[in-house]
C-alpha cells in the first residue's frame, strides 16, 4: 500500500492505477451513497442466497429420500446452471420487472449450484458401516437422516456455502449491470462510463470485500460448528 502510494506520487504509475489515498478519498466524498449501494447489492445477494439454500437443500433432501428422483434433480440442476446469467437477466426483467425481485433471483441462480452439489454429495457421504449400525437398530429414515446423514454431510454443506456466497455477490452485481437504480454494480458502470478511475477502483474493491466476507463468514461458522475430527480408524 505504502509502496503504491509512494510510486504514485513519484509519477511511476499509469493514470489507470490510482494511489490508495485517492481511492480512500472517493469513499469519503460520498460515504452515504456508497453505503446505500452496498446495502442494496448485499440485500439482493442475501435474499437470492437464502432462496438458493432453501431450494438446493430441499432438492437434495428429496433426492436423499427418493433415490429414483436423484438423477432428475441433478440433471435439472446442471441444466439450470448452464444458462448464462447475463442472458437470464433480461428475460427475468421482462417477466418480473426490473426490480429487486429479479436481481435477487439472479443472485440465487448464480449461487445455487455449489449448494446443490455439496448437499447431494454430502447426503451420501456417510460411512457404510455406520449405515449398517443404524440398520441393525431398525432406525427410522428420519432418525437416520438426523443422527447420521446430516452430521456426516456438514463438511460438504459448508464447502457449498463457502463457494456459493461469492457467487451470490457476483450474481447480484451482474444483475445490476443491465439497468438498476442503485447498487455497487451501478456505481461501477457509471464510474466506468465517466472514466472516474478512483470510483472504478473503489467499487471493485468493495465488490471483492463483499465476496471475501461472504466466504469468511461461512468459514468461521464452519470452524465453530465442526468441533470433531474423524477418529483414527481402529480397523486396519
Amino acid at each position: 500500500m505504502l509502496l503504491l502510494e509512494l510510486s504514485k506520487h513519484a509519477g511511476y504509475l499509469p493514470v489507470t492505477l490510482p494511489a490508495p489515498s485517492q481511492v480512500w478519498s472517493a469513499l469519503l466524498a460520498n460515504p452515504r451513497g456508497i453505503g446505500l449501494a452496498l446495502g442494496e447489492t448485499t440485500m439482493n445477494a442475501i435474499r437470492g442466497y437464502a432462496v438458493a439454500i432453501v431450494v438446493a437443500l430441499g432438492a437434495a433432501f428429496i433426492a436423499a429420500f427418493v433415490a429414483a428422483l436423484r438423477p432428475t434433480i441433478y440433471n435439472l440442476g446442471v441444466g439450470l446452471s448452464s444458462i448464462p446469467l447475463i442472458a437470464a437477466t433480461p428475460l427475468l426483467a421482462l417477466w418480473l420487472g426490473n426490480g429487486p425481485l429479479t436481481r435477487s433471483l439472479i443472485a440465487g441462480l448464480a449461487s445455487y449450484f455449489p449448494l446443490l452439489v455439496g448437499a447431494m454429495q454430502g447426503f451420501r457421504a456417510y460411512e457404510t458401516n455406520h449405515m449398517e449400525l443404524f440398520h441393525v437398530y431398525s432406525a427410522s429414515r428420519w432418525r437416520v437422516f438426523r443422527f447420521l446423514i446430516l452430521p456426516s454431510s456438514l463438511p460438504y454443506l459448508f464447502t457449498g456455502f463457502k463457494l456459493a456466497a461469492p457467487l451470490a455477490v457476483l450474481g447480484s452485481l451482474t444483475a445490476e449491470l443491465t439497468g438498476a437504480e442503485n447498487g455497487i454494480g451501478v456505481l461501477m458502470l457509471n464510474a466506468l462510463f465517466n472514466f472516474d478511475i478512483k470510483m472504478v477502483w473503489l467499487t471493485v474493491l468493495v465488490a471483492c470485500a463483499m465476496s471475501g466476507a461472504g466466504y469468511a463468514i461461512w468459514a468461521l461458522i464452519e470452524r465453530l460448528t465442526i468441533y470433531w475430527e474423524a477418529p483414527s480408524n481402529s480397523s486396519g
Partner: peptide, 29 residues
C-alpha cells in the same frame, strides 16, 4: 432391537461423545 452388533471397527459417530455414542441406540429407538 433384540440384536447387539459389534463391528470390526468401532464405528463410533465422531461428533458424539462417549456417553452420547453409547446412548445412540436409545435415541434411535
Amino acid at each position: 432391537h433384540a440384536i447387539g452388533f459389534v463391528f470390526q471397527s468401532a464405528t463410533l459417530l465422531p461428533w458424539r461423545t462417549v456417553r452420547e455414542n453409547i446412548a445412540l441406540p436409545l435415541a434411535i429407538v
